[in-house]
Amino acid sequence: MNDIINQPLPKAYRAITEETHRLGFTMPSDAQTCALLRTLATSKPAGRFLELGTGSGLSTAWILDGMDSKSTLISFDHDDALLAVAQKYLGHDERLSLVRSDGADWVYANKGQLFDFIFADTWHGKYLLLDDVLTMLQPGGLYIVDDMLPQPNWPEGHQEKALVFIEYLEGRDDLWIVKQHWATGIIIGVKR
Protein backbone atom coordinates (compact mmCIF):
# COMPACT_ATOMS: atom_id res chain seq x y z
CA MET A 1 0.00 0.00 0.00
CA ASN A 2 1.13 3.56 -0.69
CA ASP A 3 -0.24 7.12 -0.72
CA ILE A 4 -0.55 7.37 -4.50
CA ILE A 5 -4.03 8.41 -5.65
CA ASN A 6 -4.96 5.87 -8.32
CA GLN A 7 -8.50 7.14 -8.86
CA PRO A 8 -9.70 9.91 -11.16
CA LEU A 9 -8.99 13.47 -10.14
CA PRO A 10 -11.88 15.95 -10.19
CA LYS A 11 -12.28 17.43 -13.68
CA ALA A 12 -11.19 20.95 -12.76
CA TYR A 13 -8.40 19.94 -10.37
CA ARG A 14 -5.42 20.40 -12.71
CA ALA A 15 -6.62 23.77 -14.04
CA ILE A 16 -7.32 25.06 -10.52
CA THR A 17 -3.88 23.84 -9.40
CA GLU A 18 -2.16 25.73 -12.25
CA GLU A 19 -4.01 28.98 -11.49
CA THR A 20 -3.33 28.56 -7.78
CA HIS A 21 0.42 28.35 -8.47
CA ARG A 22 0.26 31.37 -10.80
CA LEU A 23 -1.39 33.40 -8.03
CA GLY A 24 1.38 32.41 -5.62
CA PHE A 25 -1.07 30.95 -3.08
CA THR A 26 1.02 28.80 -0.74
CA MET A 27 -1.63 27.27 1.51
CA PRO A 28 -3.79 24.97 -0.65
CA SER A 29 -4.95 21.62 0.70
CA ASP A 30 -2.76 18.77 -0.47
CA ALA A 31 -4.06 16.00 -2.75
CA GLN A 32 -4.09 13.33 -0.02
CA THR A 33 -6.27 15.49 2.21
CA CYS A 34 -8.52 16.27 -0.73
CA ALA A 35 -8.91 12.59 -1.63
CA LEU A 36 -9.94 11.91 1.97
CA LEU A 37 -12.48 14.76 1.81
CA ARG A 38 -14.03 13.24 -1.32
CA THR A 39 -14.26 9.83 0.34
CA LEU A 40 -15.84 11.25 3.48
CA ALA A 41 -18.25 13.41 1.45
CA THR A 42 -19.58 10.27 -0.20
CA SER A 43 -20.70 9.04 3.23
CA LYS A 44 -23.22 11.90 3.56
CA PRO A 45 -25.94 11.43 0.90
CA ALA A 46 -28.31 14.40 0.60
CA GLY A 47 -25.96 16.16 3.01
CA ARG A 48 -25.45 19.78 3.90
CA PHE A 49 -21.77 20.63 3.55
CA LEU A 50 -19.79 23.64 4.79
CA GLU A 51 -16.26 24.62 3.84
CA LEU A 52 -14.68 27.42 5.83
CA GLY A 53 -11.95 28.81 3.59
CA THR A 54 -12.51 28.16 -0.12
CA GLY A 55 -9.09 29.33 -1.22
CA SER A 56 -8.91 28.72 -4.97
CA GLY A 57 -11.32 25.79 -4.79
CA LEU A 58 -8.94 22.84 -4.79
CA SER A 59 -10.55 21.09 -1.82
CA THR A 60 -13.95 22.34 -2.96
CA ALA A 61 -13.56 20.41 -6.22
CA TRP A 62 -12.85 17.19 -4.33
CA ILE A 63 -15.74 17.65 -1.90
CA LEU A 64 -18.11 18.28 -4.81
CA ASP A 65 -16.76 15.18 -6.55
CA GLY A 66 -17.80 13.05 -3.56
CA MET A 67 -21.22 14.63 -3.03
CA ASP A 68 -24.38 13.21 -4.53
CA SER A 69 -26.84 15.23 -6.61
CA LYS A 70 -29.07 16.04 -3.60
CA SER A 71 -26.27 17.47 -1.45
CA THR A 72 -25.35 21.15 -1.12
CA LEU A 73 -22.09 22.89 -0.26
CA ILE A 74 -21.59 26.40 1.08
CA SER A 75 -18.00 27.60 0.83
CA PHE A 76 -16.74 31.03 1.79
CA ASP A 77 -13.53 33.00 1.62
CA HIS A 78 -12.55 36.67 1.87
CA ASP A 79 -10.00 36.69 -0.97
CA ASP A 80 -11.52 37.91 -4.26
CA ALA A 81 -8.69 36.62 -6.48
CA LEU A 82 -8.86 33.10 -5.05
CA LEU A 83 -12.66 33.01 -5.12
CA ALA A 84 -12.55 34.07 -8.77
CA VAL A 85 -10.61 30.88 -9.59
CA ALA A 86 -13.14 28.73 -7.73
CA GLN A 87 -16.00 30.55 -9.45
CA LYS A 88 -14.42 30.12 -12.88
CA TYR A 89 -14.05 26.35 -12.60
CA LEU A 90 -16.75 25.34 -10.12
CA GLY A 91 -19.36 28.10 -10.16
CA HIS A 92 -21.53 26.26 -12.69
CA ASP A 93 -22.28 23.51 -10.15
CA GLU A 94 -25.78 24.16 -8.81
CA ARG A 95 -24.99 22.31 -5.57
CA LEU A 96 -22.36 24.93 -4.68
CA SER A 97 -22.82 28.37 -3.12
CA LEU A 98 -19.60 30.38 -3.16
CA VAL A 99 -19.70 33.31 -0.76
CA ARG A 100 -17.28 36.21 -0.36
CA SER A 101 -17.22 36.87 3.35
CA ASP A 102 -15.02 37.33 6.37
CA GLY A 103 -15.14 34.18 8.47
CA ALA A 104 -16.50 35.82 11.63
CA ASP A 105 -19.16 37.71 9.69
CA TRP A 106 -20.36 34.53 7.97
CA VAL A 107 -20.44 32.46 11.16
CA TYR A 108 -22.32 35.14 13.12
CA ALA A 109 -24.83 35.66 10.28
CA ASN A 110 -25.52 31.93 9.95
CA LYS A 111 -25.88 30.75 13.53
CA GLY A 112 -28.62 28.18 13.70
CA GLN A 113 -27.76 26.46 10.42
CA LEU A 114 -26.87 22.78 10.73
CA PHE A 115 -24.43 20.80 8.59
CA ASP A 116 -23.55 17.14 8.10
CA PHE A 117 -19.95 17.86 7.08
CA ILE A 118 -17.73 20.80 8.03
CA PHE A 119 -14.24 21.25 6.63
CA ALA A 120 -12.56 24.05 8.59
CA ASP A 121 -9.68 25.16 6.43
CA THR A 122 -9.20 28.63 7.86
CA TRP A 123 -8.78 30.22 11.27
CA HIS A 124 -12.53 30.62 11.77
CA GLY A 125 -13.94 27.30 12.85
CA LYS A 126 -10.54 26.11 13.94
CA TYR A 127 -8.71 28.65 16.09
CA LEU A 128 -11.47 31.26 16.16
CA LEU A 129 -15.20 30.73 16.82
CA LEU A 130 -14.68 26.99 17.23
CA ASP A 131 -17.60 26.53 19.63
CA ASP A 132 -19.92 28.47 17.31
CA VAL A 133 -18.96 26.31 14.35
CA LEU A 134 -19.21 23.04 16.25
CA THR A 135 -22.74 24.06 17.28
CA MET A 136 -23.55 23.99 13.54
CA LEU A 137 -22.59 20.31 13.30
CA GLN A 138 -25.46 17.79 13.19
CA PRO A 139 -25.27 14.69 15.40
CA GLY A 140 -23.30 12.16 13.36
CA GLY A 141 -21.78 15.02 11.37
CA LEU A 142 -18.12 15.14 10.38
CA TYR A 143 -15.76 17.93 11.45
CA ILE A 144 -12.46 17.87 9.54
CA VAL A 145 -9.32 20.01 9.84
CA ASP A 146 -5.95 19.70 8.16
CA ASP A 147 -2.49 21.28 8.57
CA MET A 148 -2.10 20.01 12.12
CA LEU A 149 1.49 18.84 11.61
CA PRO A 150 4.13 21.59 11.60
CA GLN A 151 4.16 23.45 8.29
CA PRO A 152 7.00 25.54 6.85
CA ASN A 153 4.68 28.56 6.49
CA TRP A 154 3.54 28.56 10.16
CA PRO A 155 4.27 31.83 11.95
CA GLU A 156 6.23 31.80 15.19
CA GLY A 157 4.08 30.52 18.06
CA HIS A 158 1.62 28.66 15.85
CA GLN A 159 2.79 25.23 17.04
CA GLU A 160 1.64 26.09 20.56
CA LYS A 161 -1.71 27.32 19.22
CA ALA A 162 -2.18 24.02 17.34
CA LEU A 163 -1.40 22.00 20.48
CA VAL A 164 -3.94 23.96 22.53
CA PHE A 165 -6.55 23.42 19.78
CA ILE A 166 -5.92 19.66 19.74
CA GLU A 167 -6.11 19.42 23.52
CA TYR A 168 -9.39 21.34 23.49
CA LEU A 169 -10.92 18.98 20.90
CA GLU A 170 -9.75 15.97 22.90
CA GLY A 171 -11.49 17.33 25.99
CA ARG A 172 -14.90 17.86 24.41
CA ASP A 173 -17.53 15.35 25.43
CA ASP A 174 -19.67 15.88 22.31
CA LEU A 175 -17.04 14.72 19.77
CA TRP A 176 -15.20 11.51 19.03
CA ILE A 177 -11.98 12.47 17.28
CA VAL A 178 -9.17 10.69 15.52
CA LYS A 179 -5.80 12.34 14.85
CA GLN A 180 -3.97 11.19 11.74
CA HIS A 181 -0.23 11.71 11.45
CA TRP A 182 -0.59 11.63 7.68
CA ALA A 183 -0.69 14.12 4.81
CA THR A 184 -0.44 17.52 6.55
CA GLY A 185 -1.91 16.19 9.79
CA ILE A 186 -5.64 15.65 9.86
CA ILE A 187 -8.20 15.52 12.64
CA ILE A 188 -11.62 14.05 12.02
CA GLY A 189 -14.33 14.53 14.61
CA VAL A 190 -17.82 13.05 14.70
CA LYS A 191 -20.56 14.82 16.67
CA ARG A 192 -22.00 12.51 19.33
Results as ranks from 00 to 15, higher is better:
N2M: 06
N2T: 10
P8A: 11
P8Q: 08
L9P: 00
L9I: 06
K11Y: 09
A15W: 00
A15K: 13
I16P: 00
E19V: 06
T20N: 12
M27A: 12
M27K: 11
P28Q: 10
P28I: 03
S29H: 03
A31N: 05
T33V: 14
T33N: 09
L36M: 12
T39Y: 10
T42S: 12
T42K: 14
S43L: 13
K44N: 05
P45N: 09
F49M: 08
F49P: 00
L50F: 10
L52C: 13
G53W: 01
G53R: 01
S59F: 05
S59G: 07
T60G: 07
D65A: 13
G66P: 02
G66Y: 01
G66S: 07
G66H: 03
D68G: 11
K70P: 00
L73M: 10
F76V: 12
F76R: 00
D77H: 10
H78E: 05
D79C: 11
D80I: 13
A81C: 06
L83N: 10
A86M: 08
Q87M: 10
Y89C: 04
Y89S: 04
L90E: 01
L90N: 01
L90Y: 03
G91E: 05
G91H: 08
H92C: 06
E94A: 15
E94L: 15
E94H: 15
R95C: 05
L96E: 04
L96T: 04
S97L: 13
S97T: 15
L98G: 06
V99L: 10
R100T: 12
R100F: 03
D102T: 07
G103I: 02
D105M: 07
Y108F: 11
Y108N: 14
A109R: 13
N110D: 10
N110S: 10
N110I: 07
G112E: 09
G112S: 11
L114R: 12
L114V: 15
L114T: 15
F117A: 02
I118C: 08
W123C: 06
H124M: 03
G125Y: 01
G125W: 00
L129Y: 09
L130Q: 07
D132M: 05
L134G: 02
T135K: 15
T135F: 06
M136S: 06
L137P: 01
Q138I: 00
Q138K: 14
Q138H: 08
P139V: 09
P139L: 06
G140K: 05
G141V: 02
Y143R: 02
I144E: 01
M148I: 13
M148D: 00
L149A: 12
P150D: 12
Q151C: 12
Q151K: 09
P152F: 09
N153K: 08
W154K: 04
E156N: 06
E156G: 03
E156A: 11
G157C: 09
Q159S: 13
Q159E: 15
E160H: 14
A162H: 01
L163D: 15
L163I: 05
V164I: 15
F165D: 04
I166D: 04
Y168A: 14
G171L: 09
L175G: 08
W176L: 08
W176K: 07
Q180W: 08
G185I: 07
I187Q: 00
I188N: 00
I188G: 00
G189Y: 00
G189T: 04
K191R: 14
